[in-house]
């Protein structure tokens, strides 16, 4: 009887301890769940920040390009038009006719450039037309400078449902890479390809024949904000970036991003 009583007491104690262990498991699960929710919220917040930043930067880039083009291109054309018209001499009708024709030609060229600038002002709206179209537009603008020979293969086989937020960030990354090429590479040939691969993966590849750089031995300061931004933004959208470069061997940058 005594043994049975003791056994009952011991069993009750064991069950109580089991319940306490169960409570500990519930508490640990709640802590893990909370931490996961918090991380997710931070990721979403970071993504929103990057998105807003990218939107502002695309607009800023567009304004800078417009400003440069107005000064270098259209400003020059209009100055030349003004000079040409000022030099017209009415007593030599043949020469005056030539000069007027030249002024008309310059004016028409200015109008054409203004129209192209107008399209550029809508540049940041190109994302609504899709990433391939936005990249084509950017490539066309770069080709017009005449400094680069560009080969590009931009797919039109994108999925039916797009992701405008990712499109904007990828477009901004492309602009960042092109800015780096213009500033540092001294390249003359560029290759830009956008492919949609099996497994819902988007691949953007940019290669140049520039001076290249020693990626492994670069310090954090030498890397600059450009490369860091590219890596950070690619990670935020769940992708990966591969950078291959060596002094004198150009640079190859490949972005692989789950899409949409």
């Amino acid at each position: 009887m005594l043994d049975t009583k003791q056994e009952i007491f011991n069993t009750v104690e064991l069950i109580s301890i089991f319940f306490i262990i169960l409570i500990a498991i519930i508490i640990i699960t709640a802590i893990l769940y909370y931490n996961r929710k918090r991380l997710h919220r931070i990721e979403v917040s970071n993504f929103q920040n990057i998105l807003i930043q990218s939107q502002l930067e695309v607009q800023e880039q567009t304004m800078q390009t417009i400003g440069a083009d107005l000064h270098d291109n259209i400003g020059q054309l209009l100055s030349l038009t003004s000079l040409t018209l000022n030099s017209v001499e009415l007593d030599n009708l043949e020469k005056a006719q030539q000069k007027i024709d030249a002024a008309i030609d310059l004016t028409l060229r200015s109008i054409k450039e203004m129209r192209l600038l107008g399209k550029l002002l809508q540049g940041d709206q190109l994302i609504t037309l899709g990433l391939p179209e936005a990249i084509r537009h950017e490539v066309n603008w770069l080709e017009r400078s005449g400094k680069y020979q560009i080969t590009h293969g931009v797919t039109d086989e994108m999925p039916a449902s797009s992701n405008p937020d990712k499109d904007l960030i990828v477009f901004r990354i492309l602009q960042e890479i092109l800015n780096n090429i213009i500033k540092h590479s001294q390249a003359s040939c560029l290759d830009i390809t956008l492919e949609y691969l099996p497994g819902n993966t988007l691949q953007l590849h940019i290669a140049d024949d520039g001076v290249g750089f020693d990626l492994e031995n670069m310090t954090a300061g030498q890397r600059g904000m450009g490369l860091q931004n590219i890596q950070k933004r690619t990670t935020i959208i769940g992708g990966a970036v591969q950078i291959k470069s060596a002094p004198g061997e150009g640079t190859h940058i490949t972005l692989i991003i789950p899409y949409p």
Partner: peptide, 27 residues
């Protein structure tokens, strides 16, 4: 945590307390 630990921990023993009192009130 306080509520869970206290009420969860005491639940089994308190539920069986009348039976245990009949067996051995002191223990």
């Amino acid at each position: 945590i306080g509520v869970l630990v206290f009420f969860g921990g005491i639940f089994v023993y308190l539920g069986l307390f009348p039976i245990l009192m009949n067996l051995d009130i002191k223990q």
